[in-house]
Amino acid sequence: EDPKKEILLAMLMVDKEKKGYVMASDLRSKLTSLGEKLTHKEVDDLFREADIEPNGKVKYDEFIHKITL
């Protein structure tokens, strides 16, 4: 499956209130437990690539855009 789609799906599952962003810690939890599970190192690399703080907010569109360039 398309990794971009899988990450967006994980974000939507976490963002039940439809705020347009999720906490990095919640996204990490989903990405390491769903679908093609990522390792913590892979998530760290994704966050670093997208300039996301480990305890920060992750906005869908910015995150998807940064990791798919």
Rank of each mutant, 00 (worst) to 15 (best):
S33Y: 00
T32D: 08
E53D: 14
F63Y: 09
K19P: 03
K4T: 11
K18T: 06
V43K: 04
K41A: 07
L12Q: 15
E62Y: 06
H65Q: 13
F63E: 06
K41P: 06
H40Q: 15
I52G: 02
E6W: 00
P3D: 00
L27M: 05
G56W: 00
L46C: 02
T39Y: 00
K66Y: 10
D2G: 08
V58Y: 15
L34M: 15
R28S: 01
G20L: 00
H40V: 11
T32P: 01
K4G: 11
S29T: 12
K57R: 12
L27G: 01
F47W: 05
D61G: 05
L12K: 15
A24L: 01
K18F: 03
V43C: 01
K4P: 04
L12A: 15
I64P: 02
R28L: 01
F63L: 12
G35M: 05
K37D: 09
E6G: 05
L9C: 05
E42L: 02
M23V: 06
V58Q: 00
K41V: 12
I67H: 08
D2N: 08
D61C: 02
D51R: 11
M13N: 15
I52L: 05
I64G: 07
P54A: 08
G20K: 09
K18P: 08
L27N: 00
K57N: 10
G56F: 00
K59D: 13
H65D: 13
V43S: 02
Y21E: 14
S33L: 07
R28K: 10
M13V: 06
H40N: 14
L8S: 07
K66E: 05
D45C: 04
L46Q: 03
L8K: 02
H40L: 08
T68N: 14
S29H: 13
E6H: 08
P3V: 05
R48V: 07
E1G: 11
K5P: 05
S25D: 11
P3L: 15
E53H: 10
M11N: 11
L12H: 13
T39C: 02
P3I: 15
R48F: 02
K5E: 10
K57Y: 12
K16L: 09
I7E: 15
M13R: 14
V43L: 08
M23K: 15
V22N: 00
K57H: 12
H65E: 15
T32Q: 11
E1M: 10
K5H: 08
L9T: 14
V22C: 10
D2H: 13
D44M: 05
